[in-house]
């Protein structure tokens, strides 16, 4: 039985960059719990020596040749942006340096 706390929901919301109001945390915690209960059965399956499958079709070495192709037409890249300045995407101030 899993039990997700409000704090965990808040942490997940931060990792996922989704603003969740304090009064909604409980609600989400309950829903996530319900879903996790439903999927918890995966832990009962014996998977010793079973390899994990990340790709459904087994292929390897799929490469592209190093030959340039046309980029988007000037302006097309910026056309859908919420805010643009000086041919660049304008974003609110960045708090922490990378």
């Amino acid at each position: 039985m899993t039990a997700i706390s409000r704090e965990e929901v808040a942490h997940l919301a931060h990792l996922a960059r989704i603003n969740i109001a304090d009064d909604q945390l409980e609600h989400f915690a309950k829903q996530l719990d319900a879903i996790l209960d439903a999927v918890a059965q995966v832990s009962q399956v014996d998977t010793a020596d079973v390899p994990a499958m990340s790709h459904p079709i087994p292929m390897t070495n799929v490469f592209r040749e190093d030959i340039p192709v046309a980029s988007l037409a000037p302006g097309a890249a910026l056309a859908g942006a919420p805010a643009v300045e000086d041919s660049r995407f304008r974003v609110p101030r960045i708090l922490d340096e990378e």
Binding site: R64, D66, I67, P68, V69, A70, S71, L72, P74, A77, L78, D86, S87, R88, F89
Partner: peptide, 24 residues
Amino acid sequence: GTNTKMFCGCSTVFGAEPNTQVCP
């Protein structure tokens, strides 16, 4: 110093006008 980016065919030449060497 490849001709193109790692995952698309956009040029890697240094110093182009902003946002001109971009694709979806």
